[in-house]
Design a protein around this nucleic acid. Structure first.
Length: 467
RNA sequence: GUCCCCUUCGUCUAGUGGUUAGGACGCCAGAUUUUCAUUCUGGAAACAGGAGUUCAAUUCUCCUAGGGGAUGCCA
């Protein structure tokens, strides 16, 4: 049997971090088994679904490198089919029309809660004759769910979960306006799409019981189910915008590499012994449902950042250069030229050693394409003006020289200063670096000297500044 | 309120009826790097609490506490 998984987001917002992990797990499971990974956009809520959200989700998945198979399915386009199944259940006496008003429903909830019973619809139209229907009320179609016994969910992650049927009320299949609800659509679509394995957030666990009842009523096989724990914010509370409930594009904007985020997400709730750095190939080879944990995990930016640094250090120079050139162009407010790119790429090997994000990588490369003389950032300025260190004063007086990028002179100045003051170069390295790059968040001093020291590079910089 | 799920260092996690309870991030200390970063070495740091089963429980059972989820004509 070919494994078929799916990711089924509702397009009411961006692709958030939890959704991204769900997608990743589905993708990994499909690839591990040589199966298919399908995408279904659950847009049956016409009020809240937007095209912008659909685009953001697709873009997010692409950025993460989670390629889906076949064309995405748009759930709303299948509403006829959903209605057909609802009608079938109606014909079979497994569903019925309900005319209860919103007020009645609210009242039912209130009294149920007050009496300590399971809340929900009390089934007052379940066995009533349609001739008693009030005039002018568009009915909904409800599923006649079993009142007795229990529904058992055999979950690959959660284990066996039993829900008493009396806890579950008669869910709505078709709304008053004739559109299908989520509960009906998922079941029908998963069946029609041939989904063999459902992997989704455990906020759907209770829904799973209701859906199993539907599968049973329809005589369909229940797919294998895995309800994975949710991701929480650093404080343990539900993920909010302040934490990680950002769209994946926000992570891209923050300078995280997709491969780093993927690796991080994979390790959140899944493990393979002590392995931490896991390539995509290894992930596909190793991924199984058994290794998914059952408890919720917190989002930890420190670890993500560390992972990101690791991936940046391993990354190809040209690849990284390609990523930061647009950022540099923005910073410099001018288009980048071939020699700018070449210069940055030459320096990349040294630069990437100390970068934790694509953003900081761009920051540390900025001096390479900056206009001369440099404009200092505040911190750099302060360092250079700190009169508690004599050497700095000397260097500061030579700033004109420095700004002309005469490497020989710079080196001579450094050595002279260091020797005459009997200081280690280390002591003046920080301010020196500030002087050379205009900022304190720049690369190592020797990397700076090395790159700038290349006659060729210097020539190019001068050319740039003249034009 | 009712139902369901979860609980190993601060965080992500490994693990077993008998282990010095392992790794990673972060933190601290040291080495290397004439700065920073990288790298390396070392260190502090955990089985939520209480019963029970057992020769032996972190591991099995129950209870409590804490956390999370569900409880929509949202998905």
């Amino acid at each position: 049997m070919t494994v078929v998984t799916r990711f089924a987001p509702s397009p009411t917002g961006f692709l958030h971090i939890g959704g991204a992990r769900t997608a990743l797990f589905n993708w990994l499971y499909a690839r591990h088994n040589g199966g298919k990974f399908l995408l279904r956009i659950e847009d049956t809520d016409r009020e809240r679904s937007t095209d912008a959200a659909i685009e953001a989700i697709l873009a997010g998945l692409q950025w993460l490198g989670l390629e889906w198979d076949e064309e995405p399915t748009y759930q709303f386009s299948r509403r006829e089919r959903h209605a057909e199944i609802a009608q079938q259940l109606l014909d079979q006496g497994k569903a019925y029309y309900c005319y209860a008003s919103k007020e009645e429903l609210q009242e039912m909830r209130d009294t149920a809660r007050a009496e300590g019973r399971a809340p929900g619809y009390d089934g007052r139209w379940r066995d009533r004759d349609p001739s008693e229907a009030p005039a002018g009320v568009d009915p909904v179609i409800r599923f006649k769910s079993p009142n007795e016994g229990a529904t058992v969910i055999e979950d690959s992650v959660q284990g066996t979960v039993t829900i008493q049927n009396e806890q579950l009320d008669d869910l709505i299949l078709l709304r008053a306006d004739g559109t299908p609800t989520y509960m009906l659509s998922v079941v029908v679509d998963d069946y029609d799409m041939g989904i063999t394995h459902i992997i989704r957030g455990d906020d759907h666990l209770t829904n799973a019981a209701r859906q199993i009842q539907l599968y049973t009523a329809l005589g369909w096989d229940v797919p294998n189910m895995s309800h994975i724990p949710l991701i929480h914010g650093p404080d343990g509370a539900k993920l909010s915008k302040r934490h990680g409930a950002l769209g994946v594009e926000a992570y891209s904007d923050m300078g995280y590499l997709p491969e780093a985020l993927r690796n991080y997400l994979l390790r959140l709730g899944w493990s393979h012994g002590d392995d931490e750095i896991i390539s995509t190939e290894q992930a596909i080879e190793w991924f199984t449902l058994e290794n998914i944990g059952k408890s919720a995990s917190r989002f930890d930016f420190d670890k993500l950042e560390n992972l990101n640094g690791t991936y940046i250090r391993q990354a190809d120079d040209a690849y990284l250069t390609g990523l930061i050139m647009p950022l540099l162009a923005e910073k410099a407010a001018r288009p980048m030229r071939d020699f700018d790119t070449q210069l940055v790429q030459n320096a990349m090997n040294g630069l990437k050693e100390r970068a934790k994000s694509v953003i900081s990588l761009a920051d540390s490369a900025a001096f390479l394409i900056a206009e001369r003389p440099l404009s200092m950032d505040e911190k750099a300025e302060k360092l250079l003006n700190d009169d508690s260190i004599q050497v700095l004063q000397r260097l500061a007086t030579r700033l004109e020289v420095l700004s002309e990028w005469n490497i020989d002179q710079i080196e001579a100045a450094i050595r002279e200063a260091a020797e005459s003051e009997d200081l280690k170069l280390g002591k003046i390295a920080q301010p020196l670096r500030a002087a050379l790059t205009g900022t304190t968040v720049s690369p190592g001093i020797f990397d700076v000297l090395e790159v700038l020291g290349k006659e060729e590079s210097i020539g190019r910089i001068k050319d740039v500044n003249k034009t």
